[in-house]
Amino acid sequence: MKRLVPLVCSLLLSCTKPTTAPTTPVDAGEPVTSRGTEAAIPDAGSATPDAGTSATARTDAGTQGAPTARCSASDLSPEPKPTQPPVPEAVDSMRRRIMAAAVACDYEGLAALTREKGMAFKASFGDVTDVAGYWHELETSRGQPVLAQMVKLLNLPYARLGDLYVWPSVHRENATDADWKAVEAVYPPEQLAQMRQAGTGYLGLRLGILSNGHWQFALAGD
């Protein structure tokens, strides 16, 4: 019996002795990850919506869709009245497109029309290089309904000055009472009366289109 005790103890120690499992070296260049717990990596091709952008894209010139903002011309019709006598096709095409862009409150579209022929355009007697920004400022900051004025004036009688077609017809020498009366649809009679009394002639907005369809100016003042 005394001989069995040491043998039993020896067997117990051999059963409970910890064993060290062999380890395989990990390549330092490979990241160690836990399977099943990796966070999903977004696909680079999927975009996350920017909190600062609108779900509705702004419409540029030539694109379809509803305008993103209102302006003074929003409630006017873009359909022009026939001119008497008829103007050249290129002139009428530009006139129609100016009206359509103005009613759509499309400042960039209007600016694109001024550059279409690659010729000079004048929007002010000052130094204006960004006509879209200039008209937008007149509308939103200065309270001048320049887009509505464009649409209304292009529906009035015009005057032909050589190769240039000018709206309204009152912007010419020896303008008649009928010429002045027509522009009352755009400007208050009192304001027009002051122009006549001062002898300055018509100083409101006027638009000029050359016979080749180039939009040459949209000017007010002197």
Score class of each variant (00 low, 15 high):
152 K>M: 01
66 A>E: 13
177 D>L: 03
20 T>I: 09
155 N>A: 02
20 T>N: 15
59 T>Q: 09
43 D>I: 02
174 N>L: 05
177 D>Q: 14
146 V>C: 01
206 R>F: 09
2 K>P: 01
153 L>Y: 14
135 W>F: 13
112 A>I: 00
61 A>V: 06
7 L>P: 04
35 R>M: 03
8 V>W: 06
63 T>Q: 15
18 P>M: 07
28 A>Y: 02
144 Q>D: 12
188 P>C: 06
103 V>P: 06
187 Y>E: 11
54 S>V: 12
72 S>G: 08
147 L>E: 10
21 A>D: 11
160 R>T: 09
91 V>I: 03
131 V>Y: 05
186 V>I: 12
157 P>T: 05
201 G>R: 02
59 T>D: 05
132 A>V: 07
46 S>G: 03
205 L>G: 04
202 Y>K: 03
106 D>T: 09
121 F>C: 00
27 D>L: 06
39 A>R: 15
150 M>W: 07
77 S>T: 15
91 V>P: 01
35 R>T: 12
206 R>W: 08
188 P>W: 09
25 P>D: 13
70 R>N: 14
188 P>E: 15
63 T>A: 07
1 M>D: 14
97 R>P: 01
162 G>D: 15
170 V>Y: 12
28 A>C: 01
202 Y>V: 05
126 G>I: 00
109 G>P: 02
36 G>T: 13
10 S>Y: 12
148 A>L: 02
197 Q>T: 11
216 Q>A: 15
33 T>N: 05
189 P>V: 13
164 L>A: 11
143 G>H: 11
84 Q>F: 07
49 P>Q: 15
202 Y>A: 03
163 D>G: 08
46 S>T: 15
190 E>R: 14
122 K>V: 05
14 S>E: 07
172 R>L: 00
91 V>F: 03
154 L>N: 07
136 H>Y: 10
155 N>M: 10
114 T>N: 04
190 E>V: 10
19 T>W: 11
19 T>L: 14
65 G>R: 09
169 S>R: 02
220 A>F: 05
146 V>T: 00
218 A>D: 03
